[in-house]
């Protein structure tokens, strides 16, 4: 996908948050990216590093956790890891599935000085 515009969104969030807390340096940024979110982590880190140059986020470690794609069956209650993008309950084969996780694209927390 277009990791640069995502990276810009991250930079905007972290600089605003850091300013609100009078931080002078951002050392680490924790991101949560869902398994079904179309972002390539290494491209994102590369793009972020380029944009963060000469800001207080320059050199910050971007730590990415990939959140698994998990569904919950609304029919039988079974929670399961979605395999091969098949959104049918493996237990009762119901199609009434809630996506519990796997679509995240969020800044979780910052480490600052």
């Amino acid at each position: 996908m277009h990791e640069m515009s995502i990276a810009q969104g991250i930079l905007d969030i972290v600089l605003k948050t850091a300013a609100e807390h009078n931080a002078v340096k951002i050392s680490c940024i924790k991101l949560l990216i869902g398994q079904m979110t179309q972002v390539e982590p290494e491209s994102l880190k590369f793009g972020f590093a380029a944009l963060a140059a000469n800001t207080i986020a320059d050199g910050a470690v971007v730590d990415i956790t990939i959140i698994p794609l998990v569904g919950k069956c609304n029919t039988c209650g079974q929670q399961f890891t979605v395999e091969r993008y098949s959104f049918l309950c493996p237990l009762c084969h119901s199609a009434n599935i809630l996506v519990v996780s796997g679509r995240e694209l969020a800044v979780d927390y910052l480490e600052v000085e």
């Binding site: 995502i6 969104g9 991250i10 969030i13 972290v14 948050t17 850091a18 807390h21 931080a23 694209l105 969020a106 800044v107 979780d108 927390y109 910052l110 480490e111 600052v112 000085e113």
Partner: peptide
């Protein structure tokens, strides 16, 4: 110091 953010990156959109 850790600052909890928990913000959706596409929130503005």
């Amino acid at each position: 110091m850790q600052i909890k953010v928990m913000t959706n990156i596409l929130e503005r959109n």
